[in-house]
Design a protein around this nucleic acid. Structure first.
Length: 425
RNA sequence: GGAGAGGUGGCAGAGUGGUCGAAUGCACCGCACUCGAAAUGCGGCGUGCCCGAGAGGGUACCGUGGGUUCGAAUCCCACCCUCUCCGCCA
């Protein structure tokens, strides 16, 4: 959600930001709405003041037993009330139009975000590790995975395309990855473990920006709730409608949860394999920070995600997303892309975003700066640390052997119950 | 799911149609007293929006949304949430 006052004072900068996002200028339309809306407010508040005054007279005169005089004031008050009844629906209408307009506009990129149309224009920031030299042709996990317990058929039978059952050693490896990540984020990286609800109300999804625009990407329950597409929704909204104490900041939270995405717009992409599923698990990182701390917090969070990839020995690169590839709520995003030998390319495994005060404004999450009377909106950040399903794919492909087996990365040993290798059966 | 009770400022808690943004206490901030502190006294102490260069003024907000009324924290309706008991249940 954008600050109407910022738009009032910097309409050109606002439109320039929109242009960076590939959007047409909107400030003129917004400011026209805003102007007429404020004029309505002035008119209505005038009438309210008048009604208040008259009604107080009525009460006083009644108390004094002067009923005739009271009647005359009451008549005047009735007139004022009538006018108000006519105007109030208009106020609701203009307020609604303004809010709807502002709620549908994405966050604006910060200055150092590169200009671009799509993912082809993302900028590589750094690279870690080097792809392994295979002395055989590396296979696609979708091909050798089933023999190791990646049960695509079973998943499809139960639930349809893009659902997969993990069995035996494969389920164990998946669980080991998730536990390792969660332990690392809660331990070394100091994020508070949270086990949040997976079903949320409209307001939560509005707060993080999935609603009102992206309802078609979500699953909805019969009682009107929604399955979370990411724990970012649950975790970030924990601070909604709060004025946080200074000494509680920054707040760092993490959660291991399933995520549910209907992916309505992506039919045909990654239809094979475990890359794009309607249901997957993810260890999410969320931070709530003071504005002046959010950039450092962003770096810190990205390092927390990178640490997992490094510990697992998975080659990856860090990309700075261009304006055209950033999500709705982000002002700056890094993607971590892991090397997939079968595709001989890097694929997204984590996305780490600073949303500035965009989400905080939508969910009304504030703090009171030291020595100031005015409250201010917090900054919110989120990142994957990491997506468990895609990490499983990366481990399978990068650690595959010529015989179709997969060696387990050392760091997972404490979680694998003695299993050091997944062997085909 | 059934029956009942309740949601008021940071907290506790009063207020059942008019001068109530709301008593009182606690907490907090400032000042006075003190060498300093405690105690005491005095003053201050919610959030949003609008107007205003500012000083300041206006308006709304007592869970949320509607309604009745000249006027609603107070009356009516719906919803949300909390608590107690019963049922069911991992």
């Amino acid at each position: 959600m954008h600050d109407i006052r910022f738009i009032r004072e910097n309409p050109a900068a606002f439109d320039a930001g929109l242009a960076r996002r590939g959007l047409a200028p909107l400030s003129a339309e917004i400011l026209a709405l805003d102007k007429s809306h404020r004029e309505l407010i002035v008119e209505i508040e005038h009438l309210q003041a008048e009604r208040k005054r008259l009604s107080a007279f009525v009460g006083q005169l009644r108390g004094l037993g002067q009923h005739e005089e009271a009647m005359s004031f009451q008549q005047d008050a009735i007139e004022v009330s009538k006018k108000l009844k006519d105007l109030e629906p208009e106020l609701d209408k203009s307020k609604g139009a303004l809010t709807a307009m502002l709620a549908a506009i994405p966050n604006l990129p910060v200055d150092d975000v590169p200009q671009g149309a799509d993912e082809a224009d993302n900028v590589e920031v750094s690279r870690w590790g080097s792809p392994r030299d295979f002395d055989f042709a590396p296979q696609d996990h979708a091909d050798f995975g089933p023999a190791l317990g990646l049960d695509f058929e079973g998943g499809a039978k139960l639930s349809g395309a893009r659902f997969t059952a993990l069995r035996g050693q494969m389920a164990r490896l998946h669980r080991a990855l998730a536990q390792y990540m969660l332990d690392t984020q809660t331990g070394a990286n100091g994020y508070e473990e949270v086990n949040p609800p997976l079903l949320v109300r409209d307001e939560a999804l509005f707060g993080t920006g999935q609603l009102p625009k992206f309802a078609e990407d979500l699953f909805r329950t019969t009682d009107g709730r929604w399955l979370i597409p990411t724990a970012e929704v649950s975790l970030t909204n924990l601070v909604a409608d709060q004025i946080l104490a200074l000494d509680s900041l920054p707040i760092r939270m993490t959660a291991l949860t399933p995520c549910f995405r209907s992916e309505a717009g992506s039919a045909g992409r990654d239809t094979r394999g475990f890359i794009r599923q309607h249901q997957f698990e993810k260890v999410e990182l969320v931070a709530i920070a003071k504005p002046e701390e959010s950039e450092a917090e962003h770096e810190r969070m990205c390092a927390a995600a990178e640490g997992i990839l490094q510990a697992l020995g998975l080659p990856y690169r860090k990309m700075l997303l261009c304006t055209g590839d950033m999500g709705f709520g982000a002002r700056k995003t890094w993607d971590l892309e892991v090397w997939l030998p079968s595709q001989a390319t890097y694929r997204e495994i984590s996305s780490v975003s600073n949303c500035g005060d965009f989400q905080a404004r939508r969910m009304n999450a504030r703090y009171k700066p030291e020595g100031e009377k005015q409250t201010r909106f917090l900054h919110t950040l989120n990142g994957s640390g990491l997506a468990v399903g895609r990490t499983l794919v990366a481990v399978l492909e990068n650690y595959q052997q010529a015989d179709g087996s997969v060696t387990v990365p050392d760091v997972l040993a404490p979680y694998m119950g003695g299993i050091t290798k997944l062997a085909p059966r």
